[in-house]
Simulated assay, not measured.
Amino acid sequence: MASSSSFRMTFSVVFLIIIGMASAELSSSYYNTSCPNALSTIKSAVNSAVAKESRMGASLLRLHFHDCFVNGCDASILLDDTSTFTGEKTANPNNNSARGFDVVDTIKSDVESICPGVVSCADILAVAARDSVVALGGPSWTVLLGRRDATTASLSAANSDIPSPSLNLSGLISAFSKKGLSTKEMVTLAGAHTIGQARCTNFRSRIYNETNIDTSYATSLKSNCPRNGSDNNLSPLDTTSSTSFDYAYYKNLVNKKGLLHSDQQLYNGGSTDSQVSGYSSSSSTFLSDFKSAIVKMGNISVLTGTSGEIRTNCRKINS
């Protein structure tokens, strides 16, 4: 028992050291000299995309999340399948769900036109996530830069490591802990569900079978999500303000109006109830914590230095 405990402690220390080393190699001023207009170019493209379709803000934020949870923040999610390569786009959490790839293509093209071969696709995802939140009324934060792009991807890791909407609280805590993120940070990052939508197939079981859901809320969802069929019909993750990055998500949880099973697990008589309650009454606390948590998430197992590459096309590795 003692040796097992020692191993876990040693592993945790090593993991934190690795994360610390990686983030130490990233810098907010990374492109100041090599591509001084990189950030303004990305922001302009994101603003244009979100103005055209507000849902795109949530989609771009989600790409960053789904990228970081699979072997680190290395833009592996952007790689297309080929005859000899299988990427992550067809993994269960991404298939018919992950979107915004065309917007990333546009951003990459814009950046390549001013600074060829300089700005990584992984950094584009991190900056686009921040700019999307800002475009929808949320807070800004300083994005650390200098990530490089992976030359491979993992379908199996995408299927196993991206948290499922069917997870219970213990499963959520475990999934985030595996990535070096605390339970508090997990609850905080879940607040990203204050924007965006989910497919009927991901919440059907909840609205028909679960009891910890507001009855009128469940009823309102059933017309758009029948017991059979219509799997791809969408409903907002935040029933009150799905295109504004605010703290209403937590108010919804307190009122048993979490759309996904995994959402409501955060306020269901468990250890995270008090944090949800706190966020539901304090926008400033949530927004401050969110900025810190997403910066930490963006540092997971990044490639720096001579590792990986700077892809010319985010959909494929350089030939």
Score class of each variant (00 low, 15 high):
305 G>N: 04
282 S>N: 15
269 G>P: 01
283 S>L: 02
306 T>L: 09
271 S>I: 11
279 Y>S: 08
262 S>F: 03
253 L>W: 10
293 A>E: 00
255 N>R: 14
312 T>H: 13
278 G>W: 09
303 L>S: 02
278 G>A: 14
257 K>W: 05
309 E>W: 08
281 S>V: 09
282 S>W: 04
257 K>E: 15
301 S>M: 11
296 K>F: 03
291 K>P: 05
253 L>E: 06
268 N>Q: 12
301 S>K: 14
307 S>M: 12
274 S>R: 07
312 T>N: 15
252 N>V: 03
261 H>C: 00
257 K>M: 07
254 V>N: 08
292 S>Q: 14
265 Q>G: 02
315 R>M: 13
249 Y>G: 09
284 S>I: 01
284 S>M: 00
262 S>W: 00
250 Y>V: 00
304 T>L: 06
296 K>P: 05
313 N>F: 15
302 V>R: 05
252 N>L: 12
295 V>C: 04
287 L>G: 00
309 E>K: 09
274 S>Y: 00
277 S>T: 12
276 V>H: 07
301 S>H: 06
302 V>Y: 04
296 K>D: 13
306 T>P: 00
260 L>K: 02
265 Q>D: 02
269 G>I: 01
277 S>I: 10
296 K>C: 05
314 C>P: 15
254 V>G: 06
313 N>A: 14
307 S>K: 14
273 D>N: 14
